Simulated assay, not measured.
Amino acid sequence: MRIKSISLTAVFLTLSFNIYAQNHNPLKVLKTLQIGGDGSGWDYLSLNPQNNRLYVSHGSRVNIIDKVTGSPVAEITDTNGVHGIAFVPDTNKGYISCGKLDMVKVFDTHTSKVISEIPTGKNPDAIFYEIFSKKLIVCNGKSNDVSIIDPQTNAVIRTIDVGGKPETAVSDNKGRIFVNIEDKNEVAVIDVKTFTVLHHWDLDKEEEPSGLAIDTKTNRLFSTCDKMLVILDSNTGKVIKKTSIGEGSDGVVFDSASNTIYTSNGEGTISVVHQDHANQYTSLPNIETKKGARTIALDPSTHHLYLPTADFSTKEKDSRGRAAILPGTFQVLEVGIAGTGKP
């Protein structure tokens, strides 16, 4: 029954995608999960598949949302400069990178209480659990290095100099980690068996790589740069293709069920690129979202997309000269195909 169910799901997703591509029927925002708050900024959000909750970075806190109902569950406070949230499978451990504190906080996913603090490099940013090494990988934006945390001891066991500002990272689950180096316009490759840098791959003059995703079946990396998606061979570093995307992208996901790449663009769109095969890609119509929705998470069970954003003032500016966030308007957009339950 399980095999049959998976097969039917795959057929359904393929048919849904084909209808979408042929009719240019765009995905759309299905729900807006209202969170509120004081007008603080945000960065990444993560889905914990073990409890169906969304964990959303938000100023100096993490908002925890029930994915199904959209209701708030809890908050984890005192996470100043929060960037990312990661989880260790089959445990009740979650990890939060706190950029302004130069530390990662460990919390219990059952109680949402902080249980430990781990000093890292300066301004820890993106964080994820790496399956091959069974370690947590933390990108430290101001010390130009990557911290390797052992979840068994909750301690940093190695710090790797990557020669520039690490923005985010992914794994091929076979012993190599790939890191976007934002200020050097390259991807660094780390061997997790030795925790050493193997390569620095050039992004063919494209600038400010931010979001990074991987297809482990075709060995392809998807790096979002300034208005450009760069697709590389994860074995060799060869640039396979470059394709235009929206402005202000800070995130990208790859849905292996439909072989689709989604980039979240701060201008208020999602760029959609279909992987026809390993060396051929087709750009599809953008999905309209909202201004500020620049990071993204994929739910692999429903294939819905989630993007945090807020409403902005048309008159007031913040300290960086950008449109000020209106207090009480922080939200998460849920994106899918209307009437199907899946994108």
Rank of each mutant, 00 (worst) to 15 (best):
D125G: 04
I157K: 13
V62Y: 00
V179R: 00
K142D: 15
G84E: 10
G59C: 05
W42I: 02
T269Y: 05
I157P: 06
D250S: 02
I270E: 08
S256E: 09
T9V: 07
H83V: 06
Q34F: 09
I160C: 03
K290V: 05
D250V: 01
H83R: 14
I325E: 04
D150M: 11
R2M: 15
G268P: 12
G328S: 06
I160F: 03
S7M: 15
H200L: 04
K241I: 09
H24W: 13
P166R: 11
T168E: 02
E75C: 02
V146W: 03
K217C: 06
A10F: 13
G41M: 04
A323L: 07
H277R: 08
Q280F: 14
F12R: 10
P300S: 09
N63F: 10
A297R: 04
Y55M: 08
I214R: 02
T69R: 08
L232D: 00
L47K: 07
C225D: 01
D276N: 13
N140Q: 11
G251C: 03
K165V: 11
L212P: 00
S7Q: 15
H304F: 10
N140T: 09
W42Y: 06
L8H: 15
T309A: 07
E206Y: 08
K205D: 08
E75S: 12
V106T: 06
G81T: 08
V273T: 09
T263E: 02
H83E: 10
H24R: 13
I181T: 08
I296T: 01
S5N: 14
L333C: 10
G84K: 03
K241S: 14
T79N: 10
L101K: 03
S258W: 04
L33N: 05
K174M: 15
S143G: 03
S5Y: 06
T14I: 05
S112Y: 09
F178A: 00
G163K: 03
T218A: 04
A338G: 12
K205A: 03
S234M: 03
T194N: 11
S40T: 13
E334S: 11
G246N: 14
T260L: 04
Y20V: 04
H277M: 07
Y129E: 05
V230H: 00
G84Y: 00
T77G: 07
P89I: 05
E167G: 12
A10V: 14
D191E: 12
S40W: 09
A74W: 04
S116N: 12
P285M: 13
N235K: 11
M1Y: 14
D250G: 08
T340R: 08
N265H: 08
F330H: 10
D78N: 12
P49T: 12
K241P: 06
Y55H: 05
G341S: 10
